[in-house]
């Protein structure tokens, strides 16, 4: 066995006997593109709402709730899908979030939140992860669509204008501090700071 492994390693380390350097470079490049493309295609495929709600935990719980909110239907017909709010756009962050999501797939397989009851039990913890993430990135995902620079306060409600022109403008608070529960029902908020 060890002998065999050693032989393979020698083969791998030996310079190529049959293929030209050019072929190897270009071939390698093409293979790389194909691999990369494939990787990204898979990544993109997991980055759609259809994928998110293909598992019933999401379809029966959070998706049903999202459907009643302004981010699903509104007068202008612009929609926010799951990845818009939950997956970072920038590549390193995206990969980091996806790696983390692997844990959630684990949760799926072992049925951590298989029933509505189990989901509700776990909900506060799940929500806290999202709040913490949005708090640290200054609600980046919200700002991808809602740009503070272009908010016309004169067009907003009085309460909105007051809050946005003070605490938000001064950077004391970020979107998620005030807009928890914007897309789904909230868990039991007893003990959650500032709610």
């Amino acid at each position: 066995m060890i002998e065999w492994v050693k032989r393979q390693v020698t083969v791998l380390r030996a310079p190529s006997r049959y293929f030209s350097l050019g072929f190897l470079t270009i071939g390698g490049f093409i293979a790389g593109v194909i691999f990369w493309g494939g990787f990204n295609t898979v990544l993109e495929a997991t980055n759609t709402e259809t994928f998110c709600i293909s598992c019933h935990e999401m379809r029966n719980n959070v998706f049903q709730e999202l459907k009643t909110t302004i981010h699903y239907t509104n007068r202008s017909g612009v929609r926010a899908t799951c990845p818009d709010c939950h997956v970072p756009h920038n590549w390193t962050d995206k990969i980091a979030r996806k790696t983390q999501a692997t844990k959630e797939v684990w949760g799926k397989i072992f049925g951590t939140i298989r029933t509505r009851e189990k989901f509700l039990e776990k909900r506060l913890e799940l929500a806290k992860h999202e709040w913490a993430r949005l708090k640290t990135n200054n609600s980046l995902e919200c700002r991808n669509c809602h740009d503070f620079e272009y908010m016309d306060f004169t067009r907003q409600g009085v309460r909105a204008e007051k809050a946005h022109s003070t605490q938000l403008a001064r950077g004391e608070k970020t979107c998620i501090d005030c807009h928890k529960g914007i897309a789904h029902k909230l868990p039991n908020m007893a003990g959650v700071e500032n709610f």
Binding site: I70, K185, L186, P187, M189, F195
Partner: peptide, 19 residues
Amino acid sequence: PHAIDKYYQVDLFVNKCLS
């Protein structure tokens, strides 16, 4: 005097009005 149809949840868990 303001809209409450946004996402003002009032149920067993949460009372958004009180927030």
